[in-house]
Structure formats: structure tokens, C-alpha cells
Amino acid sequence: MTEKAVQVTWNAQQDDETDAELSKLTRPFTVYRAEGEKEEAPAEDAFEKIRDNLTVTRFLDRQVTTNNTYWYAITTKDTNGTETPRTETVAATPREPPQLIRAAYHQLAGEMQTAQLEFQADAPNGVSGKRAISENVWVIVTFDRRMNLGIADESRYVLRKVKRIDGINPVSAIRDRMGRRALLAFDTERLLQHFGQPLTTTDQYEISVSNVADIDENAIRGATRPLEIPSSIREAAVSDLTQARVYPNPVRPNVADKGVITFDRIPIGTRIQLFTAKGELLETLDVTEQDHNEKKWWLTSNNTADVSTGIYIYVLEFDTQKKIGKIAVIK
């Protein structure tokens, strides 16, 4: 069934005294149809003949309108050529494919219990709602109607940068009680490894979904929506070093790209110092308001000579906090 046609099929009873193929040829089928409500079949006199003399056990009805319910019944002829009683009726409602209407980055701080109750009931394969919600990054996708359990399969979703082919799957997906939304959980470290940066940047991302269907088995073959990241998330004030990210790491500069390390989610007033593995100071960077909580190191020493392949140490200092880490440069 699609939005433009209904495929009707049935089983033919063979006459024991007649060859099966000959039986089909000498006993043609007739298809009757009526429009009505989905919950209750129409009266007998509402059915009209729409096709007769069929020698196969299928019929494709193309004269349908989206969202109308159609009821079908089949007859054939007995050995005397008399039309048999109609079969039991079956109904079909051609509909447009379901739509993915929204994909939104979601913070559940303060909403943990509510979200857990909404999504936990349909958690697949023993994955609890609590586990998915506890992941660092999550996205809620919304469909235009109730969907079947397929939307709880994380392999059906891909998060990618806009206009890029490669992407990453969520680590879990949970269908909500109403079946119109799914909560997708992404592991922060895997996102950083794949994209080389957090999602809360100025880059644009999108979520795609494929091979899922609504509760009437109308399928989405493929759909994509931009990932909405609220400006409050992108521009949230950074007050400590707990969210600091350093990427890409390792960095692989080449002839076409000299390479750059980004220090992201860094509080204004932070001092960044870069050292060699032997403890020699290479460069000092100060984060100001103009940096918008992000500072770049262009792999230089004292802002002049390029550094060589090796391991380098960074030290972040803000107020009384200090964070130390390593950066690998591979040429």
C-alpha cells in the first residue's frame, strides 16, 4: 500500500477435480469495493464492482484518494457459472509516508524524572530510559504520527554535518509512550573523535532516519531534518574548566593544512600554556571576551616557528582551577 495505490491479494481455493492452472482460467475473480470508516465495514449494498474476469489472485487499485478508507471483497464463480458469495471484507487506508518533522538537541537538567517516565516504557533490548538519559548528549526526534517499534532501533539514525556523507549512530534509541518521538543518546567522546569538536559550535548538523514505519506500516525510506541547537546552549556562559575540550587530538598537519588545535568551552580569563615534553615553554595564550570561549593554537612556538612531530603538554589555569593534558602532533 502506498499513498497512490492499494494492492489487494487473496488465496484461491483449487477444485480437486480440475487442474490448478485451468481452474484459475475458468473461474475468474471479481473485485468489489466500498468506501467507509476504518472501524466498521460498510453495508452490503455499498459495494460496487470495480474489476471482473481476473485470472490472477491480485489486483492493484490505483483509483484511490489519500486518507480515505476502502473496503474490498472478492467473488468467483462455481462450476455452474454462478457467482459465489463475497469473501470477508478487508480494509486499507492509503496514506502519505510519515514525516520526520523535528530533530532537537535536548538538555534534560531539571526534567530527568519526567523524561525517564515518558521514554522508559518502550526501551528496547533491556536498555533502560535511565541509561540513555545519562549519556552526555541527547537528541529528541519527532514524527508527524504514531510510529511502530522500529524507531527504537538506533541503527536507523545517523547524525552528520550538513552536506557530509559520513556520520555517527546513536548508542541507544528509545520510543516514547505515544510513539511519536524517540530519544537518541550519543556518547560525547565518540562525537569528539568523529567530528573533532563538540556539537555546540557554529557548525550545522542534521539527523537522518531510514527504514522506519508508522503503526499502519506506511514507511519512511529516508528523511533528514536539521539538528536544532538552542542559542542558549551555543552561547551558554562558561564559568569553569569542567566542559573544556581540546580538538582535534591527535592533529595531523600537512602541506595543504598546517593544522590547528582548538581549546573550546574555555572561561574568559583562562591562561593556556603550551610546553614540550621536556617542560620547555612554547607559547602562552590568554582567553578574552573577543575569543567567545574558544582559543586556537596554530602549532607554533612563540607565534613563529612551527612545532615538529611529538607530544606536547597544555596547562589551563582559571581562577583556582588547573587542567593539564597532552596533545599529539603527527606529521
Score class of each variant (00 low, 15 high):
Met1Asp: 13
Lys4Cys: 14
Lys4Glu: 15
Lys4Ser: 15
Gln13Pro: 09
Gln13Cys: 10
Glu17Ile: 07
Thr18Cys: 08
Asp19Trp: 09
Asp19Phe: 09
Glu21Gln: 15
Ser23Cys: 11
Lys24Leu: 13
Lys24Ala: 12
Ala34Asp: 03
Gly36Pro: 00
Lys38Ile: 15
Asp45Ala: 11
Phe47Tyr: 15
Phe47Ser: 02
Arg51Lys: 15
Asp52Tyr: 05
Val56Trp: 15
Thr57Ser: 14
Thr57Arg: 10
Gln63Ala: 10
Thr66Gln: 14
Trp71Pro: 00
Glu88Trp: 12
Ala92Lys: 05
Thr93Ser: 05
Pro97Arg: 07
Pro98Met: 04
Gln99Glu: 13
Gln99Ala: 09
Ala104Val: 08
Ala104Phe: 10
Gln107Ala: 14
Ala109Gln: 12
Gly110Ile: 13
Gly110Tyr: 07
Glu111Met: 13
Gln113Val: 14
Ala121Ile: 13
Ala123Tyr: 08
Pro124Arg: 02
Asn125Lys: 11
Val127Cys: 03
Ile133Val: 13
Glu135Ile: 06
Val137Thr: 07
Val137Ala: 01
Trp138Arg: 12
Val139Ile: 13
Phe143Pro: 01
Arg145Thr: 07
Arg146Asp: 11
Asn148Cys: 03
Asp153Ala: 08
Glu154Val: 06
Tyr157Gln: 02
Val162Pro: 01
Lys163Trp: 13
Asn169Cys: 10
Asn169Ser: 10
Ile174Gly: 02
Arg175His: 02
Met178Asn: 10
Arg180Phe: 06
Arg181Phe: 04
Ala182Gly: 03
Leu183Asn: 01
Leu183Asp: 03
Glu189Thr: 09
Gly196Leu: 00
Gln197Gly: 05
Leu199Pro: 00
Thr201Tyr: 02
Ile207Pro: 00
Ser208Met: 07
Ser208Thr: 12
Val209Met: 00
Ser210Met: 09
Val212Ala: 01
Arg225His: 14
Ile233His: 12
Asp240Arg: 02
Thr242Val: 13
Pro248Ser: 04
Asn254Tyr: 02
Val255Pro: 06
Asp257Arg: 06
Lys258Ala: 08
Gly259Asp: 00
Ile261Cys: 01
Arg265Glu: 15
Ile268Gly: 03
Gln273Asp: 11
Phe275Pro: 01
Phe275Val: 07
Glu280Asn: 14
Leu282Ala: 04
Thr284Phe: 07
Thr284Arg: 08
His292Ser: 13
His292Phe: 14
Lys295Asn: 06
Thr300Leu: 04
Thr300Glu: 04
Ser301Gln: 13
Ala305Gly: 08
Ala305Asp: 12
Ala305Thr: 12
Thr320Gln: 12
Gly325Cys: 04
Ile327Thr: 03
Ala328Leu: 12
Ala328His: 07
Ile330Asp: 03
